[in-house]
């Protein structure tokens, strides 16, 4: 069941840049999200998913990360859960990147830099949209 209320949403942020991660967390807190988990890279995200995947309603993940990219992480998550909302954070919005992300099963994507309103809109879209 998709969670419609952002306050009830349990979000996993995957972002290698500590300051960006902290900022996203703060932004989400401002939006009323209370349960936020963080992973500093794809590996940590996968570990988290292995142990506590059921606790997460949405993954907000940076595209461009060392070792395991956002798309790679998405592919691996999709083998476990085909429908969990996955919001890709990207600096790119070219056709090729979007097609790549969509074909990997991304629920929505948001372009950096983004405002709180844009993040809220995209999180709402991701939580509502059926992949």
């Amino acid at each position: 069941m998709p969670v419609t209320n952002l306050e009830e949403l349990k979000v996993l942020i995957v972002e290698d840049q500590a300051d960006t991660r902290a900022m996203m967390k703060e932004m989400m807190t401002d939006l009323g999200v209370t349960q936020i988990f963080e992973a500093k890279d794809g590996r940590q995200a996968l570990e988290f998913i292995d142990t506590a995947f059921d606790f997460v309603d949405m993954v907000v993940c940076d595209w461009n990360m060392p070792s395991i990219s956002g798309v790679e992480l998405l592919r691996q998550i999709r083998t476990v859960d085909a429908s969990i909302p996955f919001l890709m954070v990207t600096g790119r919005d070219d056709m090729d990147s979007v097609i790549e992300a969509k074909s990997s099963g991304v629920t929505a994507y948001i372009r950096k830099p983004f405002s709180a309103a844009q993040l809220e809109a995209k999180m709402r879209i991701a939580s509502k949209r059926i992949t």
Binding site: D19, M23, M24, D30, G91, K112, P113, S115
Partner: peptide, 24 residues
């Protein structure tokens, strides 16, 4: 440019994000 823009966007996200939140 795309490479530079990516890192630059991260920085801008933080600057813009925190200023918006501070205003709020």
């Amino acid at each position: 440019a795309a490479g530079v823009a990516h890192d630059f966007n991260n920085i801008l996200s933080i600057i813009g994000g925190y200023s918006t939140m501070s205003t709020k």
